[in-house]
């Protein structure tokens, strides 16, 4: 069900410092949002795609397939931003009228929509770079090194573990229900789903109870400790993301100067 996670564990970039990946991802994301430029977004998309596919060894088809996931939201969002309603007709490039109301597209509307579309695509690719190359365990460890409160990280790691336990349970119950025609109609579907969710809740509760008992039996005192992989330290590794982003910023300024924010 969750295949992004599976790829994160087989990525060739898995052993890179997670803080490095976090910094690279967030920096490029920030530049992408700030630049609001079609060209820069496409370049960011290419950089992140190259890192994930060529360096990380994630199949290109998977990366493409993932890029399609947010399309439905993006399409609706961009259309909503692009289409305007007004009682004047002359501001529109083309429009339709229903009764007295005109809905249409203005030139700046198209521009905004196009910027938004590419900006979001570029940003999503940065997110995929992080999530396809960094296992969640490493992200949590990185957050710990960044001084996020311990309780928060522990909750996160427990939730992360439980998600898969519960998903397995759900899949089993779904198969059982489906094979008995549990979702053949709307009313039976509701009944089955309610049974599934409530059973899941009670099972989850019991599981957490058992887990606590078993942890306590092994000397649990409020902290789950594990050994972490050690990474190369030092500021030198951050030079490449910083250079890449400085180049992007410079390019944005040049593009803005020549096209006046059109691209």
């Amino acid at each position: 069900m969750i295949y992004i996670d599976k790829y994160a564990y087989i990525s060739k970039l898995k052993h890179q410092d997670p803080i490095y990946k976090l910094v690279f991802c967030m920096m490029t994301l920030g530049v992408c949002l700030w630049a609001n430029s079609i060209i820069i977004s496409i370049i960011a998309l290419l950089i992140m795609g190259w890192h994930t596919v060529c360096k990380g060894g994630i199949p290109c088809a998977i990366f493409m397939k993932l890029m399609i996931i947010p399309m439905s939201f993006l399409a609706i969002g961009v259309l909503t931003v692009g289409i305007n309603v007004s009682d004047k007709k002359d501001i529109f490039l083309f429009y339709i009228s229903v009764f007295d109301i005109n809905a249409g597209v203005t030139q700046s509307g198209i521009q905004n929509a196009a910027h938004l579309f590419f900006k979001a695509l570029g940003a999503v690719s940065c997110l995929y770079y992080l999530s396809l190359n960094t296992p969640m365990v490493d992200i949590l460890q990185a957050l710990g090194r960044l001084r996020v409160p311990k309780l928060f990280i522990e909750l996160m790691s427990l939730i992360y573990r439980f998600i898969f336990v519960l998903l397995e349970t759900v899949e089993m119950m779904l198969t059982a229900q489906k094979s008995r025609m549990g979702y053949s109609g709307i009313s039976s579907g509701y009944r089955s789903l309610a049974a599934l969710a409530s059973t899941l809740f009670i099972r989850a509760y019991k599981r957490s109870d058992e887990l606590y008992t078993s942890l306590e039996a092994r000397g649990y005192d409020g902290e789950l400790n594990a050994l972490h992989e050690s990474y190369k330290k030092g500021w030198i590794q951050y030079t490449s993301p910083i250079t890449v982003n400085l180049i992007l910023i410079a390019m944005t300024l040049i593009i803005r100067h020549f096209t006046g924010g059109l691209m």
């Binding site: 427990l158 336990v165 519960l166 709307i186 809740f201 509760y205 109870d209 606590y212």
Partner: peptide, 23 residues
């Protein structure tokens, strides 16, 4: 201290619930 496990289960439950499909 037991509530930590319970909270974590609640979070996972919310995540899994949001992955289900309602007709």
């Amino acid at each position: 201290p037991k509530t930590k496990m319970l909270l974590a289960m609640a979070g996972a439950f919310a995540f899994v619930l949001s992955a289900l499909k309602i007709p």
